[in-house]
Design a protein around this nucleic acid. Structure first.
Lengths: 215, 215
DNA sequence: TTTTTATCGATATTATTATATCAAATACTT
DNA sequence: AAGTATTTGATATAATAATATCGATAAAAA
């Protein structure tokens, strides 16, 4: 029933990968050579079986009984799986609060992503820099993306402008869109779109709070 | 096997609620009185059965055959379920890039959340304002949270400081933590914690990109 | 008033994801 | 060198979530 011959890896699994990677980096810096699924599991707060299943999907080498997994090897495998060697540069469209924050956010670096510039319509912002990165005018978007062969566009514009921005990014050649505008967007089939719904996250939080804290 | 007598509502369902709500608000402003699960489903890109199941969990009134659900009633129900009447004020700890962005982010407002102040150690930031909101010194955190009876703390400090900040917030009386630091945190059982993992999101994006765009 | 038809909500089915169990493997201990 | 203990990875089971099916209902049409 599966169209592709590749085994499907669930989002839940993918979402755990950065956690594994992060912990492995930590252990690696301490000089740890091998690590067991049990230990990893405790740190990530999941079951050890799940860790083994997850790692089996990406590991190029089987874990060794009584020793566990080779930390450095596993790091490379996960990084490769996540495409951190692949996905490198991004532009931000929308230099409002969230956009400027992302410009300065160092957290992306450790995940193989570098934000190289932002774009906005606001004349007061255009020409300024945030964290050493230029804020350019929207008119230059297509040219910049095409010239630098940027694979990823981060969208932090208001909802009303989101679809048009996405169209322009796609037209300019990005292969993926990371959308923070609370809007349902349409993209061509071969473009990867992930809409980050902070409202939904907040909802989960509030929902849990409601349940726990009610009365 | 379930400790609580309340039926458990899945995170996936909760995450869809803001989508429903948003769409309902849109329709409501157009004057739509009743709306069917089929129409909602098309807009949210899920199946109509799923919509009905989700709505059945929160709706105070059954949908009417041939008409659908009463839009305004449903909005109230969802808002109540999400606790948007309940969760109102929050503080941000860590006025770095992300923290300042959230201070200015208007998106929270429409979800019933108001960020009232930020806290930081950096003397250069303390005393300044962002979007009309004060950045205060960490020394004042406990007093402020207790005095204003703030239920939610948003954590945007570096990983190394995250656990201590959380401890202090909890000590000061918040009931929930929204964590943006890439760190696994410990909280007492009655405190709601949601760690927002931008790296994980990025990973999913990169993962899909890798799969689609490979070769 | 009767018939038609869109829609709900309940139940059953399927798919997906996580957990439990256990034999095989191998580093470590004696 | 032999035995022990720990860890993996495979298989089986359970739990969770999404989808499909269908009779009951009530608004609209005839």
């Amino acid at each position: 029933m599966n169209k592709t011959e590749e085994k499907q890896i669930s989002k839940a699994t993918i979402a755990r990968m950065p956690l594994y990677l992060h912990y492995l980096q930590e252990e690696n810096s301490k000089g740890t050579q091998y690590i067991s699924s049990t230990v990893i599991a405790q740190n990530i707060s999941v079951s050890s079986v799940l860790v083994r299943k997850d790692l089996a999907l990406v590991s190029s080498e089987a874990g060794r009984p009584r020793l566990g997994f080779a930390v450095s090897r596993l790091m490379v495998d996960i990084e490769k799986f996540l495409g951190y060697d692949n996905l490198s540069e991004a532009v931000i469209v929308g230099a409002g609060g969230l956009g400027r924050a992302f410009l300065g956010y160092e957290g992306f670096k450790s995940n193989g992503l570098s934000v190289v510039a932002a774009f906005d319509l606001d004349e007061k912002l255009v020409g300024t820099k945030v964290a050493g990165k230029d804020i350019l005018h929207m008119d230059e978007l297509e040219k910049f993306v095409a010239e630098h062969n940027i694979p990823l566009g981060i969208v932090t514009v208001p909802k009303s402008a989101a679809q048009e921005v996405v169209n322009r990014l796609v037209g300019a050649g990005v292969r993926a869109i990371w959308n923070f505008a609370p809007a349902p967007l349409r993209v061509p089939k071969d473009i990867v779109l992930k809409t980050e719904d902070l409202a939904a996250s907040l909802a989960i939080l509030a929902g849990k709070l409601y349940k726990t804290g009610d009365r």
